[in-house]
Design a protein around this nucleic acid. Sequence first.
DNA 1: CACAGCACCTGCCCGC
DNA 2: TGCGGGCAGGTGCTGT
Length: 284
Amino acid sequence: MPELPEVEVVRRGLHDHVVGRIVANVAVQHPRAVRRHIAGPADLEQRLTGATITGTARRGKYLWLVLDHEDALLVHLGMSGQMLVVPSGLAPSTHERVRFRFADDGPDLSFVDQRTFGHLMFDAGGAALPSVIAHIARDPFDAEYDVAAVAARIKKRRTGLKRALLDQSVVSGIGNIYADEALWAAQLHGARPTEKLTKPQIIRALDAAREVMAQALGQGGTSFDALYVNVNGASGYFDRSLHAYGQRDVPCARCGTPIRRESFMNRSSYSCPKCQPRPRNGRF
DNA sequence: CACAGCACCTGCCCGC
DNA sequence: TGCGGGCAGGTGCTGT
């Protein structure tokens, strides 16, 4: 589910609910949830136990909890991951993968993930960017994000525009939904070859991506429940504000032409046939 | 090296 | 009611 706005809502919730607390116990319920932690579940549990959570950070769709002793817990929610703040000792839900208990006996933290594409791993980098995500590019909300530089890089590539927007090593945080929304706003088809686009066109798409994610973040933030840290912030945005994604046959908000659905990489792309004409030699 | 395709999972919904 | 196929918002690995 989660793209940058949803992950940022989760980060903010975690910041409010777990920073300053001491981890008393970690229980990995499903080893796949920590598969990227090579030393194994027991090692992860042991390294986190006794640590104080001192802060939170995020890049793109990755977030991490900063720990004392210059360590960090890296989190990726995958397609279905949630970080829930639940009453202490609550029985695990069906898809709970990891449970954290704290020394203050306050609410637990539960990592729930139906499809198990998400994962947690320990990192020794502290507040600095974890080394395993060194390849993840800055996202549009990063203070050092340089839209002109990203556009220049995209123009040098030989691929389709949507592929480039989804490539987390070029610009991070954009997923299938916000890519489609950005392309709709920029009135560009995702199969447009990157090298044939002008730099202003690419910047238009990148700026649209940032704008649509900023709007989603605003709405996701307002639907945040004080008790639960969740990724449902997206649902409000889903229903009200999507112009393209999932809108097959719905009249385009700009011109009234029914939105079309195309298949791409075994997933769906939605666009307006009139506002976003498909290029002759497109690269989907 | 850059790029495209596929694997990795579970559950739901649809048509037959 | 059961079964098969399609679909779901992500990433990393592998082959070309």
